[in-house]
Design a binder for these strands. Sequence first.
DNA 1: CTTGGCACTCACGCACGATGAGTGCCAGTT
DNA 2: AACTGGCACTCATCGTGCGTGAGTGCCAAG
Lengths: 342, 342
Amino acid sequence: MVEDRKLAVLRAIVEDYVATEEPVGSRALVERHGLGVSPATVRNDMAALEDEGFIHQPHTSAGRVPTDKGYRLFVDRLSGVKPMSAAEKRAIATLLDSAVDLDDVVQRSVRLLSNLTHQVAIVQYPTLSRSTVRHIELVQITPSRIMLILILSTGRVEQRLLETPVAPSEHQLADLRTRVNQAAAGERIADASAALGALPDALGQDDRALASSIVDVLTEAMSDHRSDERVAVGGAANLARFGDSFQTAVRPLLEALEEHVVLLKLIGEVTAGDSVTVRIGHEGPYSELASTSVVAAGYGPPDQALATLGVVGPTRMDYPGSMAAVRAVARYVSRILDEGQQ
Amino acid sequence: MVEDRKLAVLRAIVEDYVATEEPVGSRALVERHGLGVSPATVRNDMAALEDEGFIHQPHTSAGRVPTDKGYRLFVDRLSGVKPMSAAEKRAIATLLDSAVDLDDVVQRSVRLLSNLTHQVAIVQYPTLSRSTVRHIELVQITPSRIMLILILSTGRVEQRLLETPVAPSEHQLADLRTRVNQAAAGERIADASAALGALPDALGQDDRALASSIVDVLTEAMSDHRSDERVAVGGAANLARFGDSFQTAVRPLLEALEEHVVLLKLIGEVTAGDSVTVRIGHEGPYSELASTSVVAAGYGPPDQALATLGVVGPTRMDYPGSMAAVRAVARYVSRILDEGQQ
DNA sequence: CTTGGCACTCACGCACGATGAGTGCCAGTT
DNA sequence: AACTGGCACTCATCGTGCGTGAGTGCCAAG
């Protein structure tokens, strides 16, 4: 089928261009890949592919380069996900298994992803919104200061310092500790906030002021969007491999890497739970990043994605490999979190 | 004095080169700066300066460029610290004053420093070693799991999860909580570790196993060097301004930015408490970073530096401005920490 | 010690032509 | 209808040569 060969040609162009970083010509194509036709035939196919917008030549008498549309077709229909080697799987497992806490898991994942893909890796910390309250602790630091510690099911710990005008008694504090835990422990963030909100009214005059300031701080900590926006970034040194187009491509990306909100928007909008999402060049929300692609996946419990992770790189990147790495890491992290939570 | 003018010429060369990024010639010098002599005179001085190793010409018929030795002399004797403007001081104060916790202070400082200097900023989190234990909390999460929370005087909170073979009783846990706090609260890390180590022996058979595993985890958390190595990095986008020499200068730096140990070594070794340390080019410990300079200062209580912060940039950088910014931020952070601790 | 003058060096920019990779098209073959 | 060989054409790249000018070093005079 001629149509099949055209797709094979596109695949070959993408693979060669990704490998060599140079426009690929008809002769080189037939030599490197074993398509059993002559360069002239390939040229015809190339002309057709160019008409359809899948490839593009930088200038006359140069080879062809895939367009964003070409990469899209490649990713959707021509590539599949390259399976990870057993050694890689083992490396992932052992590295992540030896993580000691949530922060460690996230940091190791970033490192892992950037090492596996040789690209910039981004891992979002698990969001608060879907997690539940595991425990609330009130600790008297000084007579006029209480530290509130909020422990969530994901293992995240939020702490807040509270100044009190009058020093509460030991007994009073113990009572409050019991009450807030009864109200909030085991509940989802949203429900816990509501339950806590009703708490002060049920108390006597003496406790009410203290209780309500504690509740205020706790609800603030729960709704704190700062935590939702936390991400870890790694492998920025791989940007040095960008080759050409430093100023046009690397600089905006470096800037984006510091704007965590931007990063989250890049990585986010992952559709289903397990599948890997690929966003190619201009498909993304930022025009400055038109020459970068994003490969991302959600992680967390099977039914609900807690957060996302992924890699960012030039549109000319190894999609099958990156997709495989992202998917594998996402799965392992999900499993680790699941075990840690039981 | 002719010697004085030579120094003035050196200063002018450094300033112009920093500003324009191009080798500076004799004519441009006398025009831009008001030295009341002719280009020929300046040329003589330049020749002398070159003989002494303070400047260097990339090739015949090009202007002069400062050497590391030239920058060193400039920093030591010719520049002084450019005072911050009132507006800048206010910006620092308001930004840092509105930080909510230790992490926030550090993150705001990084942002501040990189914005003020247009360079890569690095802030080390306060070290554990000199801080004291404020409180230890034991929280029963599930029957077989205890969460240990270690609160330090710097505001840092370390948490560890502990699996217990047998579920301790509520009363048992409360007793242990009291004991560990009696032993450790208020003590320095090192002393607290020692005091805790002796604790299990003073207990009855039943409690001893549990106590010793708790103590083990706590001492591990206290001696955990991971925490000592934490740093925040910001302003990496400023690397895009490096102009030439991307591969030679930016890449190793990008790599270093991910190796926090390397960063600490770069920033560290700050001599006195308050003064600003400058390390120029090859003076640093890494040959790959020969074309970068570091401006750093310690912060913390007046007598003892808790940690360091600073900026990293090309040897061709605005030393007076950077030194001013680093010093100002270090002072403000010290003050904030001091207040927060009282 | 400073200065004007002068010869000299050499990076930089530009034009020019040769080279060759790669293309598009067409006529012939299967 | 699909493939192939041939051929003319385009054009980026590279090396060469040359003019220009910024900048220097040196020297003799002030």
